[in-house]
């Protein structure tokens, strides 16, 4: 369980995250949506202790993220950021192997190697595993970073806009993969998404933020309704039910 209690973060007087309290139960896939500047990525960075908060508290399984030892937390929670620029010339396998760092501190064991193999295979990266990252396409690189997070094998996995720069095929594949992480491995997955329809189709829970504050939260069927979307994104839209999924049309 991730408990976010009254978390606030300001830059130069403006609160980017404003007294947000939110509890994310274990398991399932939660999407965080909201307009630009709503504070989604900042909140994710705070939860994963990449960024300190001004006030408030975040507990992951009762562990206070601003106090807990870095490596203890790294075995429990992982995050994939959107801008993954690395100066080091690393091969895919090297990169994925870093996922084991919290466990082995750089001295890989046979068990680690197994984890690495499995993550690489899971993302279909075997053909490229000895290629350098800068020799890959954007989608392949994105998958390599997901494989690294997978290899870190934590209960909680956070993804900050993982669909950025992906074409439709890879975006769908990525979301299906995150779905499988929640279903097959009982991981708790939290994703910041821009596309409401992706959120609607793949989430168990949707959390909406606006202006640094928590706007709404609930299952897709409660969230994907015109009145709420209007309130969150300030656009008129219609919602269509296609099978079990509710899809939003905001094009007219």
């Amino acid at each position: 369980m991730i408990e976010i209690q009254e978390v606030t973060k300001s830059y130069g007087g403006t609160a980017v995250v404003d007294r947000v309290s939110l509890t994310l139960p274990s398991g399932g896939l939660t999407s965080i949506i909201g307009p630009n500047g709503a504070g989604k990525s900042t909140l994710l960075s705070i939860v994963s202790r990449l960024m300190p908060m001004d006030t408030g508290k975040v507990l992951v399984d009762g562990l206070d993220v601003s106090r807990a030892a870095g490596d203890v937390l790294a075995r429990r929670l992982s995050i994939m950021r959107q801008d993954n620029h690395i100066t080091a010339r690393l091969s895919v396998r090297d990169l994925v192997a870093f996922g084991r760092y919290p466990y082995s501190k750089g001295r890989l064991t046979a068990a680690d190697a197994e984890h690495i193999d499995r993550s690489i295979a899971y993302l279909g990266l075997e053909p490229y595993q000895n290629r350098f990252l800068d020799e890959l396409s954007g989608g392949q690189r994105q998958r390599a970073f997901i494989a690294m997070v997978l290899c870190q094998d934590t209960d909680y996995m956070l993804f900050d806009e993982p669909l950025n720069n992906l074409d439709i095929k890879h975006a769908v594949e990525t979301m299906k993969l995150l779905r499988r992480l929640a279903d097959d491995f009982a991981k708790t997955v939290v994703v910041v998404l821009h596309d409401i329809n992706f959120a609607s189709a793949y989430s168990d829970r949707i959390v909406a933020m606006q202006g640094g504050r928590l706007a709404f939260e609930g299952p897709p069927q409660d969230m994907i309704v015109p009145s709420r979307l209007q309130a969150i994104f300030d656009v008129d839209c219609r919602v269509h039910a296609v099978g079990d999924t509710r899809l939003v049309n905001y094009f007219d």
């Binding site: 960075s45 030892a69 490596d71 790294a74 690395i86 870093f98």
Partner: peptide, 14 residues
């Protein structure tokens, strides 16, 4: 080696 991944990644890895 972890540091060369950048600040965020390094913190993420503990």
């Amino acid at each position: 080696d972890v540091l060369s991944l950048g600040r965020e990644a390094a913190i993420g890895l503990g």
